[in-house]
Amino acid sequence: MTAELAHRAGDKVLQLPLTAGVVVLTCNLPGIDGVRLSRESLAGIFLGSIARWNDPLILAANPGVEIPDLPIVVVTRVDASGTTSVMTRHADRMDRGWPK
Results as ranks from 00 to 15, higher is better:
A61Y: 03
D69A: 06
I58W: 02
V78H: 13
D11M: 06
D11H: 13
V74F: 11
F46Y: 15
C27G: 14
V73E: 13
V86S: 01
I45F: 01
T84S: 09
G10L: 04
E40I: 03
S41A: 15
V22S: 11
P71E: 10
S85Y: 14
L47D: 03
V13L: 08
D33R: 12
T88N: 08
A20I: 09
N62T: 03
L57S: 02
I67G: 13
L29N: 01
W53Q: 02
G48L: 07
I72K: 06
G82Y: 14
A60V: 00
D33S: 12
G44V: 00
T88Y: 05
Q15W: 06
A20G: 11
I50R: 13
T88I: 06
P30F: 02
V22K: 14
L16D: 05
V23G: 03
R39H: 10
E66I: 07
S81H: 08
R52K: 14
V75Q: 13
A80Y: 07
A9G: 06
G82D: 13
A43P: 04
E66Y: 01
G10M: 09
D69W: 00
P30K: 07
E40K: 12
N28D: 15
V75M: 04
D79I: 04
L70V: 15
D33K: 08
A9P: 00
A51E: 14
A20V: 06
